[in-house]
């Protein structure tokens, strides 16, 4: 077990900056998810940590050791790939044993550690089979077992669930969480799926255009995004933003006001489920355009002052298309962003 420390890592591809002066610390035993849209540099960062990609500048430390210039094998880490990369010509046992064999461990140790990893991932019955005879979910388990069998200080996972179908992904997600908690391995997990990141991670690092926009606990990433990008990327539906102007030490609109020292135009962000639906006269006027019954709730899409807003209503709420209802905002559950910079104030 060891912490991962990334200090000022940059990566240039020709003239394009893929990563810019990035700092990140993953504590010993912690599970951090790198979340971001495709092309944000999250996989590049993971591959630099793994040693599969060269960095343009900066340092990578695992534990207290500077591994920046070491080959992948000497960094004391294991990795799970998006397409599993389970060797088709080896049995499940030999796949899981691969890392241990490369380390020239004795047969007894190999047997013991393979069996333990296989038990953890529940692939014991398939040890004699070849990967072609396994389902996608089972191959994924083999890939994770292969990584855990070497008892790595650090585990890197590159979108490991994205090739699975939705139901299996849900199942594997819960299972991965319990397995990794049990193993206590420091994990860095790359994903573009926010529910995966929210569900699995101790902390989420949201990446955008080669920089980390925000790193925090999942609930804080969700409720207190530090930038317009994070608020808009995390959460489904994404955070709503209203264009307002602050003046005289407060920010106010219909039926809502909060103290704010900032002067001038700002964005008021709030989550669709954080509003109370009231009579039109008592809150911000919201004209309902579309009603989507989602089972557990109604998703309402409408406009406030010409801006598109999405809010969540109870499933039995008596709301019809074209109605105008009032939204009552809770000052404790809103964020205010600078219109110019898109950063939280």
């Amino acid at each position: 077990m060891a912490a991962i420390t990334i200090e000022g890592v940059s990566k240039r591809f020709g003239a394009a900056m893929a990563l810019e002066q990035l700092d990140l610390t993953v504590a010993d035993g912690e599970f951090v998810a790198l979340l971001g849209p495709s092309g944000c540099g999250k996989t590049t960062l993971l591959r630099i940590i793994a040693g599969l990609e060269t960095r343009s500048s900066g340092r990578v430390l695992i534990g207290d050791r500077d591994v920046s210039d070491l080959p992948p094998a000497q960094r004391g880490l294991a990795m799970v790939f998006q397409n599993y990369a389970v060797f088709p010509h080896l049995t499940v046992f030999e796949n899981v044993a691969f890392g241990l064999r490369m380390q020239k461990r004795d047969e007894a140790t190999i047997d013991r550690q393979v069996k333990r990893a296989a038990d953890l991932l529940q692939i014991g019955p398939y040890l004699d089979r070849y990967p072609a005879k396994l389902s996608g979910g089972q191959r994924q388990r083999v890939a994770v077992a292969r990584a855990l069998a070497v008892e790595p200080a650090v585990l890197l996972m590159d979108e490991p669930l994205s090739n699975l179908d939705a139901l299996l992904r849900l199942e594997m997600r819960a299972e991965l969480k319990s397995v990794l908690k049990e193993a206590g391995t420091t994990t860095l997990y790359v994903t573009h799926d926010q529910t995966e990141a929210m569900g699995l991670a101790d902390r989420i690092a949201v990446m955008h255009k080669g920089v980390i926009e925000q790193i925090d606990e999942p609930t804080r990433i969700y409720s207190k995004p530090s930038s317009l990008f994070v608020g808009g990327f995390v959460g489904s539906p994404p955070m709503n933003f209203l264009n307002l102007v602050a003046s005289g030490g407060s920010l106010a609109c219909d039926g809502f006001s909060m103290p704010l020292t900032h002067q001038g135009p700002v964005l008021l962000g709030f989550r669709g489920e954080d509003v109370a639906l009231v009579e039109a006269s008592r809150g911000v006027g919201f004209e309902v355009k579309v009603i989507e019954p989602m089972g557990s709730h109604l998703l309402l899409t409408g406009v406030v002052n010409g801006e598109r807003i999405r809010v969540v209503a109870p499933p039995q709420a008596d709301i019809a298309r074209g109605m105008t209802i009032g939204l009552q905002l809770d000052a404790a559950r809103v964020v205010v962003m600078d219109t110019q910079t898109g950063k939280a104030l």
Partner: peptide, 14 residues
């Protein structure tokens, strides 16, 4: 041969 197989081999110390 997908390049991940070679990378996996690298990672696991081959």
């Amino acid at each position: 041969i997908p390049k991940e197989f070679g990378e996996a081999a690298d990672i696991f110390g081959a």
